[in-house]
Amino acid sequence: MNNWMLIALLSISTYLSRVIGVEIMAGREMNATLRLYFNYVPIAIIAALIVNQMLVPTDGGTVFSLPVLIGCLATAITIKVIHTFLPSLIIGIAAGLLARYFL
């Protein structure tokens, strides 16, 4: 298979995976339990994505990233205290970078 054919098939399969979920559910009246379930899905996925990026797979194991943990904790505390998005990000990234260079 040449590269152009591979790119075409990847484009189609990726787009289908995106549009199917949106179109099947769009405009449908969800029952209360399903609606509640889908309200919790983003929370679960965001929490999983955060932890997934703290745990870095290596050859035959998993390494815990302390800079990512410290950065996330600093962001969590800052946004809890000052309730402002951008400064919380800046403080988190600064804390993560400091942890990377000094720990």
Partner: peptide, 28 residues
């Protein structure tokens, strides 16, 4: 660091109520 930190800043304000917190803890 930008991905996990931005996700954290978006997640923390949403963590209200036991069902939501339980969902996040189980996902972790």
């Amino acid at each position: 660091l930008a991905f996990p930190i931005t996700f954290t800043a978006l997640l923390i304000p949403s963590l209200r109520g036991k069902p939501v917190i339980a969902t996040a803890l189980v996902a972790v």
